[in-house]
Simulated scan of single mutants.
Amino acid sequence: MAAMTEPQHATIDAAMQAHLQTWQGKSESRVDLVAAAPVAAMAATLDRADPAPVAGTALPPLWHWMYFLPHARQSEIGPDGHPLRGGFLPPVPLPRRMWAGGRLRWEAGNALAVGQEVERVSTIQSVKHKAGRSGELLFVQVEHQFRNASGLALTEEHDIVYRPLAQPGEAAPAPQTPPLAGQAAWSRTMVPDDVLLFRYSALTFNGHRIHYDRQYVTQVEGYPGLIVHGPLIATLLVDLLRRHLPQAQLLSFDFRAVRPTFDLHAFSVHGKPSQDGKTVELWAQDHEGWLTMQATAVLA
């Protein structure tokens, strides 16, 4: 059998765009068991002193990202460490692939928990091509619905962005100041060392080389250092909320990645609840104070 390779198109013309859009509406279903071991491992990775999880222990928000993982064979891995493109997700020819954000809605009274068998039904909602200042962009939005024995428990919309490699002399996007800079009620400083990035990659079976292969991320994708996982930063934002409001029940969480975070410096996560306590504004910023992720949590 011939070796599988990634597509080599440099641009997305009208024919390619039309081909990629045929993935809209495509669905797949996966079933997984919410096992206890990953929950204990994530608690350790986030430096939490949680009790050992047992059957019935509620799965903390965003920790479902440790389940329903694609298990591509080693021969099916692309040059960036991800599974080769095609299959469920469209074969986008742009080499950079990032998790741009998402929107999650939990069903009150039906929490995912350790010991449950859960079905995830994923559907590609849209495939959109845009031209930005740094070149072509292609956005893929995927909806995931999670059901346990009691029915729908969680709905998630996941935004993926594909873009070209960085070009010499390319200007970086203008940095943004956090809208609530200096107003945080809660803050935590994180040191994104290699061990933290490795452990999160391992827990989410994420082979994307931008998170652990310094030679690849700097020489091939043109970044200055290892990239901190967007989902890890989102998880740290929710973890900050849980540390200060341990009994809070999330109804929704919307987040948007604004700027990459690299392992070269510490970064920080911040939160500010509303006066009525029903919403919490959350954000992450880098060592220079620039906004890297912005999120809003709505509480029950």
Rank of each mutant, 00 (worst) to 15 (best):
I233L: 05
Q285I: 00
T292Y: 05
E119V: 14
T22C: 13
A10C: 10
G271P: 04
T155I: 10
H229S: 08
M1F: 03
Q294D: 04
I227E: 02
G87T: 11
A295R: 02
D13R: 03
E281K: 11
A234I: 05
P70N: 15
L138W: 04
G207N: 10
R147I: 01
H158E: 14
T5R: 08
V118L: 15
E288G: 03
A49F: 07
A166E: 09
S134A: 15
V217E: 12
T235D: 02
S150Q: 05
V54E: 08
G289L: 14
F146S: 14
A149R: 04
W106R: 09
N148R: 01
P79G: 12
V92H: 10
A202W: 08
E281D: 12
E156N: 02
L69N: 04
V191N: 11
P179Q: 08
K130Y: 05
M190G: 01
E119I: 10
T57C: 07
P51K: 03
M66R: 05
P91F: 02
L62D: 02
W283N: 12
G101L: 06
A55Q: 13
G277L: 08
A18E: 12
S252W: 00
E28W: 02
L241Y: 00
V140C: 07
W283L: 15
S29I: 12
Q8Y: 01
F88A: 13
E143C: 11
F68M: 13
L84K: 02
A35I: 06
K128R: 13
H229W: 03
D254C: 05
G101W: 02
